[in-house]
Write a protein that binds this DNA or RNA. Sequence first.
DNA 1: CATGAATGAGAGTTCATTCAT
DNA 2: GATGAATGAACTCTCATTCAT
Lengths: 228, 228, 228, 228
Amino acid sequence: MDAPSAPRSAARSAARKSSGARPRELRHQALADARRRSVLDAARAAFFELGMEKTSMREIAQRAGYTVGALYSYFASKEEVYGALLAESLERLNARVRQAVEGCADEARRARRSATAFFDFYRENPRDLDLGFYLFQGMTPRGLTPELNEKLNARLRDALQPTQNALKALGLPARKALEEVTALFAHTVGLLVLSHTGRIRMFRQASQDLFDAYLRQLLARAGAGQEA
Amino acid sequence: MDAPSAPRSAARSAARKSSGARPRELRHQALADARRRSVLDAARAAFFELGMEKTSMREIAQRAGYTVGALYSYFASKEEVYGALLAESLERLNARVRQAVEGCADEARRARRSATAFFDFYRENPRDLDLGFYLFQGMTPRGLTPELNEKLNARLRDALQPTQNALKALGLPARKALEEVTALFAHTVGLLVLSHTGRIRMFRQASQDLFDAYLRQLLARAGAGQEA
Amino acid sequence: MDAPSAPRSAARSAARKSSGARPRELRHQALADARRRSVLDAARAAFFELGMEKTSMREIAQRAGYTVGALYSYFASKEEVYGALLAESLERLNARVRQAVEGCADEARRARRSATAFFDFYRENPRDLDLGFYLFQGMTPRGLTPELNEKLNARLRDALQPTQNALKALGLPARKALEEVTALFAHTVGLLVLSHTGRIRMFRQASQDLFDAYLRQLLARAGAGQEA
Amino acid sequence: MDAPSAPRSAARSAARKSSGARPRELRHQALADARRRSVLDAARAAFFELGMEKTSMREIAQRAGYTVGALYSYFASKEEVYGALLAESLERLNARVRQAVEGCADEARRARRSATAFFDFYRENPRDLDLGFYLFQGMTPRGLTPELNEKLNARLRDALQPTQNALKALGLPARKALEEVTALFAHTVGLLVLSHTGRIRMFRQASQDLFDAYLRQLLARAGAGQEA
DNA sequence: CATGAATGAGAGTTCATTCAT
DNA sequence: GATGAATGAACTCTCATTCAT
């Protein structure tokens, strides 16, 4: 899967896209996509500025230069807007991780680079982290269709896959590699959450340093595992 | 431990409390505290049952057997209610950690027990974790006064202090002990967040096992540091 | 049952009403009732003027001199407003029927009078007929709780009871009396509906005359039944 | 039977039809009619399935495979769609009544059959009854042009004509026959309305039986009238 | 003719907060 | 202190209809 998709309303569009579309329809489709884009851009901007809670459909519409009703041509509900934003975010995350390991043959480096890319993506774009958690407000899923949820989870797994593969290549057994990548993921999320909520200054520690330390230990373990 | 306080409206109460109060006022104060309590109990119940989002002042009032307006005698705003709840939650956390190490002389054991108590508290009471993050919804602080925020941070630090002290006693230099306890904290939070959002099943891993593994490594490091 | 009741929001009020209320509460209650009344009056006026469809909560609020939100102190939903209106309407219907037969000993006259009162009530107040059918828009029940629905049905039956009783007194067996009163009811409704939708002018017939004719035949049958 | 017509937008089509149309225009006309048909079919299906209230122009368009705007090429408004549907419904009613008396010489039988056909049509197709009343929602005409209204009334009268004629043939004077058929009509509508709104179960009576009883009495009166 | 994006008004409902009593 | 009616703004979402293309 490539493009971030619009679950409901874009069904027909998607169909058209894949068919040998005539020029007329292509132009139409391009326009529709562009408009969808502008709505998503407005939504992301609003959300980055005001936070999820205070971003209403009205707010998004205003920023996008549309009326409220018009948004509903593109998205069936507010949650769908956020679903699309989240999907996009995960695509960007994956792109970044992919780039980080591109053309790198050394497995230890691949592990380090992919994990760091993951961490950096969210460190640099804290709102994307919010996005990931919004739909689980109060830590409870809300509104996502199970299918979309699974899709998003899959994309998240994808972003960690390069690290997992590298760990295996370094000699860790599959089970151990999975364990380590999960722990790494948790560690990363923990650092980011605390850092963004201001809780980590509490200890006067830079999350960056802590991440590096954790990664060093992990790679040491992986190396040890290799030798063992 | 002081009583969880309401920053604004409780100012007068606090003043009274600290003064050499006359009996009449004491009785008064006791009553007010009891009523405040009952509101908080209702709020916690509502929040545990319905989640943060769906808990309105009306809902709390109803459960507490008060009218809506009455709540505002005790709390200046909804946020203040949650501030008080969070304060309480942190007190319970501290109590639990304190109990865990009570009468235990072995420092390694103290470290393990205090850290585990911390982890378990939130694992068993996921809503208390929500509470901690609610006021930073969208990862942005909202509504807390800086003073309260600092107070709450301090109580959180307190809950990790036993672990930090134990690590020092095990031979880690102060700086290193702080670092490790911060990393431990982040790891813990990461595991809990992922576990509660359902993201950790993604990797089919039990957060409990991962926590144990992390703790083992930490203690190994601490042991090594001691010996070195 | 006597007073038209407010299903949800008036629960507490009702409780108070029946208890040996203190003067303070009584005054309070009286005020609350008066306000509820004024909302219902506004709702009825709006509905008589604009019809059910075009009467919004906003419209009602405006006429009652309230804000929209205030209505929801008295009624939990729009449907509840209409439920209350309908309940009231049925009370007035019953009062009218009761009055019509008051102090009349002759059973044939009682039958005629009660049936005519029923017919006249709706002929004179066509909107009350609408009220009865609104909640079955598209001929399908919507929104009423089954309990309320049953209650309203019961009140409707009550309004036909005097006629049914008179028929029995005239000698019709119970089963036959029920049958006749049902047929009478249907005939009445049919005449009224056609008359109000303008369909009966189609045949240049006065619904009043047709009703009288039907009633005459019915009484003839009842008389015959008596003699047989 | 003329085609069900659309008062406004079909004006041009009608004009074309009646002129000595050239082949080109004829083909055109046929296409337009076919498309109009498909829209009406979709509208009826939607309306039968969802009820009047929940059937939007969007819904109809979707089912018909058109876009929303396209509907407005064929119908000037939503009300016009329903006007056309009602017209159709009345045609089907007439067809049914006509069929029922076809080739039946006995006048008493003709009366019974035509009246029963009328009753059965609506009993079996409750939504057609809704259709008839929709445009008088809240019992007040809305949206129909007086001309269309008159036309529809005429078709309704037509459906009752066979019964009226049979009654006359049975010996009832014209005025009396009109009266009786009107009363029959009212009785029928009343039974159907109550039956469909669930109000008739109130009395635990089958509308079918009541209708039969009424018809029996009517025919007895007609017979008596004949002999007298 | 057909498209379908866009409008604009309006729907019901919720809610934190205020304030006269 | 406590009441609870009232506010007023906000919310998501729906819909018949229009119009440039």
